[in-house]
C-alpha cells in the first residue's frame, strides 16, 4: 500500500510541469516534448526539446523547453545537465519559481543549485503603504542569488533617489522613508524602483514601477499685518506757525544790522534800496509760506513704530514658513506598486 502511495505521489510530482506547460507552449515541437514528458518517455523528451531549441521560439517556449530538459535530466539522475538547463531557465525567466511540494526533490535541488550559480535579483516587491512623512517607510524586498554589490534606486519625476546600497546576498529587506536630503517627501509621481547587482563583470537589474501620491497639506498663509496693530503714516504735516516769517525777519534783520554796523562814517549812510528790495522779498516770501499749508515732514516716531511692526511681521512670517515646511514634510505619503 505504501509503495503504491509513493508511486502516486511521484507520478503527481512529475506530472506537475505539464500543467503549466499547456498554457505557454504554442510551438508544436515543445508540445510534443511536453506530451513525451507526460508519458515518461524521457529519451523522446530530450530529442524533442533539443530539436525545439533549434527552432524559433518565444521566450516562454524556450524557457519551457529548457525546463523540460531540466526535469528530464533530473529524472535521469544527470544532475549537472539538469543544473545547466535550469540556469538557462532562470536567465530567461528570473522570476521562475518551483514549488518544492509539487516537484521532485532532485529537480528542485538542481533548480536551487542553478539559482546559486547565476547572479539574479528576483522577487522585487514594493508593498503598498501609506504613512505620514518622516514617520514611516516603504518596505522594499528582493532576493539576490549571489553575494554582490547592490544599489537600490528610485528613478522618477522627482529625480533619482538612492534607497540603499550594500553587499548583500539572499533575501534583502529595505525600508525607504521616501524623503529627499532636505527632509521633504519625494515629489508625487511615478517612479521606478531599480535594483542593480554587480559581481565582478556580471551585472543584473530588476525594476518595479511605483506611484507616489501625496495627501492634502493645509499650510498657513503669510501675514501682512498683525491683529490690533496698524501701520502709521510716516509723514506728518506740522501745524502752521510764525516760523517762516520769523526766520525771514531774522535773516533780513541780520543783514540790516550788519549793513548799518559796517557803514563807513566817512562815506555816509548807504542806499537801502537794495536791501529793501531783497529783504522785502524775503519777508513777503516768509509771510506767504506762513499762510501756506506746511510741507509734510518725516514722523520719526511713526517710522520707528512701523519698522518694529514690519520686523514683527517678518518674524511671524519666518515662523509661518518654518511651520509650513514642517507641515509639507509631514504630508500623507501613499506608495503603491504599478503593474508592469
Amino acid at each position: 500500500m505504501a509503495r503504491y502511495l509513493g508511486a502516486v505521489v511521484c507520478f503527481a510530482a512529475l506530472a506537475v510541469p505539464a500543467l503549466g506547460a499547456a498554457q505557454v507552449a504554442q510551438n508544436a515541437t515543445v508540445r510534443r516534448a511536453q506530451q513525451a514528458y507526460d508519458n515518461l518517455e524521457y529519451r523522446q523528451v530530450l530529442t524533442l526539446a533539443r530539436a525545439a531549441l533549434r527552432e524559433r521560439l518565444t521566450g516562454a517556449e524556450r524557457a519551457r523547453a529548457y525546463e523540460l530538459l531540466g526535469f528530464t535530466y533530473g529524472a535521469m539522475d544527470s544532475i549537472l545537465k539538469a543544473v545547466d538547463a535550469f540556469k538557462q531557465v532562470v536567465l530567461i525567466d528570473p522570476e521562475r519559481q518551483l514549488d518544492p511540494n509539487r516537484v521532485s526533490p532532485k529537480a528542485y535541488s538542481a533548480f536551487d543549485v542553478a539559482l546559486r550559480q547565476v547572479l539574479l535579483v528576483r522577487q522585487l516587491r514594493v508593498d503598498s503603504v501609506s504613512f505620514v512623512g518622516g514617520q514611516g517607510a516603504v518596505p522594499v524586498r528582493f532576493t539576490v542569488t549571489q553575494p554582490a554589490r547592490v544599489v537600490a534606486r528610485a528613478i522618477g519625476t522627482g529625480g533619482t533617489v538612492v534607497i540603499d546600497s550594500g553587499a548583500w546576498n539572499g533575501q534583502v529587506n529595505l525600508r525607504w522613508p521616501a524623503r529627499l536630503a532636505g527632509g521633504d517627501p519625494v515629489p508625487a509621481g511615478t517612479y521606478t524602483v531599480v535594483v542593480d547587482a554587480r559581481l565582478g563583470q556580471n551585472t543584473f537589474s530588476a525594476s518595479q514601477p511605483i506611484r507616489v501620491s501625496h495627501g492634502r497639506v493645509d499650510t498657513v498663509p503669510s501675514v501682512t499685518s498683525l491683529p490690533g496693530y496698524q501701520f502709521l503714516p510716516e509723514t506728518e504735516i506740522p501745524p502752521q506757525s510764525w516760523r517762516p516769517v520769523g526766520l525771514a525777519f531774522l535773516y533780513t534783520g541780520g543783514a540790516l544790522v550788519g549793513t548799518l554796523g559796517l557803514e563807513s562814517p566817512t562815506l555816509g549812510s548807504s542806499s537801502k534800496r537794495e536791501l529793501g528790495l531783497v529783504g522785502g522779498a524775503a519777508l513777503v516770501t516768509g509771510f506767504v509760506m506762513m499762510l501756506r499749508k506746511p510741507a509734510p515732514r518725516p514722523a520719526e516716531a511713526n517710522i520707528l513704530y512701523n519698522r518694529l511692526l514690519r520686523d514683527q511681521i517678518a518674524r511671524r512670517n519666518q515662523d509661518i514658513a518654518k511651520e509650513n515646511v514642517a507641515r509639507r514634510q509631514q504630508v500623507q505619503v501613499t506608495v503603491a506598486p504599478v503593474p508592469k
Binding site: P244, A248, Y251, G254, A255, A282, T285, M289
Partner: peptide, 16 residues
C-alpha cells in the same frame, strides 16, 4: 553762511 528752508522750495541765506 547760514541757510534755512522757510517753506516748500523757499530758502533764505545769510552770509558774512
Amino acid at each position: 553762511r547760514s541757510f534755512y528752508e522757510i517753506g516748500p522750495g523757499a530758502t533764505v541765506v545769510f552770509r558774512a
